[in-house]
């Protein structure tokens, strides 16, 4: 990955607010989010709130705007500290993301801040190319990644489509009670 891309993705945002996470079955999670202007100050503020909320939730590596009740196509991600991560692009926010290419499906278990009681076995691509805009600058970026970052991006883009991992559960036994490690 290029240093230029990382520089484009790196955000220098005002400190955001920690927002309340919405939980299923809230309808906002099942509604397709709408495109938004990446340069709109409200979008920049939303990006900051997503990062703040994500950082405040233990184990949360990605957050879509509708998970804090905003039906706009924006998500934040930071899988840099996750053990299943290979390629990663640090902590970033993507506006109006579009999955351009996805291949090499693998099944793995994933959880969601909005579905706190369950985890699910979901098949997702392990090679992924996603395009989108950076909040603030509006820069058009194309991210190519793999492994856990690819899974996390697909999970967040699903949110923006109004889909939860529950919609992609691989069969009748694909949902599990979430283990509490604390």
């Amino acid at each position: 990955m290029s240093q230029e891309l990382l520089a484009q993705l790196a955000l220098d945002l005002p400190k955001g607010l920690v927002r309340t996470a919405v939980q299923a079955p809230d309808p906002v999670l099942s509604t397709r989010c709408v495109e938004v202007d990446p340069c709109d100050p409200a979008t920049v503020s939303l990006a900051a709130d997503l990062l703040a909320t994500m950082a405040a939730a233990p184990g949360c590596v990605g957050l879509a705007a509708n998970q804090i009740g905003v039906g706009q196509r924006v998500f934040s991600l930071d899988v840099s500290a996750h053990s299943k991560t290979r390629t990663h692009h640090g902590r970033f926010v993507l506006v109006n993301p579009v999955i351009e290419q996805a291949s090499r499906n693998e099944k793995a278990r994933e959880g969601c801040l909005s579905v706190p009681d369950f985890t699910g076995d979901v098949k997702r691509a392990t090679r992924l190319t996603v395009s989108g805009r950076v909040p603030g600058t509006g820069a058009a970026v194309i991210i190519t990644t793999d492994a856990f970052e690819a899974r996390a991006i697909q999970h967040e883009v699903d949110h923006l489509e109004g889909l939860l991992f529950l919609d992609r559960a691989a069969g009748a036994h694909a949902i599990h009670a979430r283990q509490n490690y604390l």
């Binding site: 939980q23 079955p25 009681d117 369950f118 529950l166 949902i175």
Partner: peptide, 8 residues
Amino acid sequence: AGTLYVVL
């Protein structure tokens, strides 16, 4: 779980 009902 809570008010969330899931059928698979």
